[in-house]
């Protein structure tokens, strides 16, 4: 059994040690907001926070995460879609198909936690998630909106 601190709850999961964290989150913990898109850390749909930092969970073996590391998934970012990034996303109607957006939101939230007032150039270079619908213009606007409100250091 592997112990994980997932969205503030410590739980034991039954998985082979080399299983990617992504699939443990999705299949053993049943939290399907974190998406599989590529499996090789290219697209970022699987982005979660580990101790506040954005991590591509598809390429991280579950055995490399310890029970004292805090994993936060999109389901744990806020209780009620109230994280500043989620609020900005809702106001600007950012998602199209939405499949990449949990990862996009998690990456953006981690960026703002680390750098609350990023420049446009910093946003463009830091947010490398793939969106095939092409929502980038509104992703950029959403991060700027959340940053302008200056309350995005949480999360």
């Amino acid at each position: 059994m592997i112990r994980l601190n997932l969205n503030g709850v410590v739980r034991e999961v039954d998985a082979e040690p080399e299983t990617p964290l992504l699939w443990v989150i999705r299949e053993q913990a049943g939290l399907t907001g974190t998406k599989y898109g590529c499996g090789i850390a290219q697209c970022g749909a699987c982005t979660v926070h580990i101790d506040g930092a954005a991590v591509r969970s598809c390429s991280m073996p579950v055995s490399s995460v310890t029970a004292d590391q805090k994993i936060v998934t999109i389901e744990g970012l806020s209780a009620d879609r109230s994280h500043p990034v989620q609020k900005a996303w809702g106001e600007l109607d950012v998602p199209q198909c939405g499949f990449c957006q949990p990862g996009m939101i998690m990456a953006s939230a981690a960026l703002l936690a680390q750098n609350p007032r990023p420049s446009e150039a910093e946003i463009r270079s830091e947010i490398t998630n793939i969106c095939r619908c092409g929502t980038y213009t509104r992703v950029l606007a959403g991060i700027k909106l959340a940053a302008e409100r200056g309350e995005a250091g949480r999360g």
């Binding site: 999705r26 939290l31 399907t32 907001g33 974190t34 998406k35 599989y36 998934t73 999109i74 389901e75 970012l77 806020s78 879609r81 989620q86 996303w89 809702g90 109607d93 950012v94 998602p95 939405g98 499949f99 957006q101 949990p102 939101i105």
Partner: peptide, 17 residues
């Protein structure tokens, strides 16, 4: 859009989910 809220918190169920 009518389908935005569920796409903000991971609750939208896609086929893969």
């Amino acid at each position: 859009r009518l389908d935005t809220a569920e796409k903000l918190d991971g609750s939208q169920v896609y086929g893969i989910d």
